[in-house]
Design a protein around this nucleic acid. Structure first.
Lengths: 181, 181
DNA sequence: TGGCCCATGTAAGCGGTTACATGATTGA
DNA sequence: TCAATCATGTAACCGCTTACATGGGCCA
């Protein structure tokens, strides 16, 4: 499991509330590890219990109270332990591939349309990543340390989305060609 | 959820026992949708309850009895329904990216080593996919229908693994360069 | 003798998803 | 007036992971 660790990494970059973390997981870190607010609140509670983070209650007026979470020493130890630990390389889990594989068991044209739809979503994500890359990392050769690491993760997103777009294009070309015959 | 659907697709290609399906999910279809034998047995039971598959008990001597599963009509209807249904494009969930992003919170060299290890695993998977491609699909332009669809899914695996290998190489080059400075 | 193959399962626990709930402030 | 934002939560359910269990046949 890595949600705890993703939260720890994010909180070390900057302390925040559960709500704020949920928003971060809607972008940046969330591009590589998605999580909903319910998941985050529950996990934060557990992490307080483990002593990995501390939650400081902050009263606000005109707004609901909030709890600002910070990484505690035990959390820093845990991150370091996890970073050095060997993990399983990702196994793919790609529903669309299962649909393509089974396309002839139903309406092939519907599956083709679905591939086209996914293609567009991935193309949009790719554009978004490329825009961030241009805006935040105009000179990648000058990067070092944490900034370099952030850049490299973004590069992974670019590569993944590009691969997905290109695969969808290959599938569309082949299936349309097959349909024509 | 798509495990049911992956099983239906696999059983339509060829009926099989839970054990056999578990082995299929250890390769071919399993490259794109992993599942353990416990998951498969439980899901098959549920699917019998739903009327999507039938399980024929077959006594064997010298070996445990087995149950041969086949897709029922209701299962065929369900596959067709699912194929035409719009699904969410994959969101990435990549633990190694989270580690790279947090590398400076621990032993950077350990994370670099982890990336190198993953690189090798992905390179091996890529080679395995390419070997299957050469062996089973020597002339892709001649493919149609179900065989074409199988080929296209394999192409997705090739593209995904290649993208991962190349990303790992980019990360390794950049992090080693950063280390040298 | 030891380990792998065939073949199926139970049980416990965890993590993730979805629905529902509250309630004030701010801006269109 | 309506919707969005800030901010946190409960509850139910489902799926997935891991450990444990059984037991004969086959091959080195």
């Amino acid at each position: 499991m890595a949600l705890e660790h993703a939260i720890l990494v994010s909180l070390e970059e900057r302390p925040g509330t559960g709500y704020e973390l949920a928003r971060r997981f809607g972008k940046s870190i969330g591009f590589f590890w998605a999580a909903t607010h319910q998941q985050i609140y529950r996990t934060l509670k557990r992490m307080v219990g483990l002593g990995w983070v501390t939650g400081e209650e902050i009263a606000q007026d005109g707004r609901p109270d909030k709890r600002l979470y910070r990484v505690a020493d035990a959390g820093r130890v845990e991150v370091a332990r996890w970073l050095a630990e060997a993990g399983e390389p990702t196994t793919l889990r790609h529903e669309l591939s299962v649909k393509v594989r089974g396309a002839s068991l139903g309406d092939v044209a519907a599956v083709t349309a679905e591939v086209a739809r996914h293609r567009d979503v991935h193309a949009q994500r790719l554009d978004a990543f490329l825009a961030i890359e241009r805006r935040d990392f105009p000179d990648p050769t000058a990067l070092a340390g944490q900034r370099l690491h952030q850049y490299l993760v973004l590069r992974g997103g670019v590569r993944a989305e590009r691969a997905l777009v290109e695969w969808c294009d290959e599938v569309l070309a082949a299936m349309r060609e097959d349909d024509r015959r």
